[in-house]
Amino acid sequence: METVINMALLTLLAVVTVAMVVQRSLLSVVILASIYSFLMASVMIVLDAVDVALTEASVGAAVSTVLLLATLHLTKTREDMPRHGRALPLLLSLAVGGMLVWGTLVLPPFGTANAPIHQHVAPRYINDVMAETGVPNIVTAVLADYRSFDTLGETTVIFIAGIGVMLLLGGLRRQSSEEGAPEDPS
């Protein structure tokens, strides 16, 4: 049952992606991207990644969409026809895709419990998490306890991204308004 639901959701994802590739109105692309994120969150729930699904639904479908819409408000919403040929990118993509599919042929089948990924560190976390941290949600325990250095670095990345955007969009405006010389809006 899980497999069938997963396949249906993945098919929907592929359809939405095709629509995003052919759509020329950027507003539609952004709305489709939002739908894509919700579908991705559903797929993640089927794949048992509930924490990730919650994050994808709130970040991918909400905040990303708001930021993209704000950008479209500041720029333009229509995509021009590309001037160069599409044959080379298509060929490149298909070649890369072919090689990657060939690479997946040796991967273990979907959902098997004795695949190599489940043998190494995961049993250590699953068996010892209650004794060592007392936190039932293993994802939270690994995120904030076992691998808190990663999370510290990641919080710093968010901090840097925020500072970067504030400098790019806010800093100059303040400076130029103090000098009394508004920017040329061309």
């Binding site: 794949l47 990644a49 970040v59 690994v142 990641e154 840097i160 991204a161």
Partner: peptide, 19 residues
């Protein structure tokens, strides 16, 4: 239980992705 480690890595990746 499904393997929790990829979940942790991807949780981090999503938030960095929006940044």
């Amino acid at each position: 239980y499904s393997n929790p480690l990829p979940h942790v890595l991807i949780l981090t990746a999503i938030v960095v992705g929006v940044g």
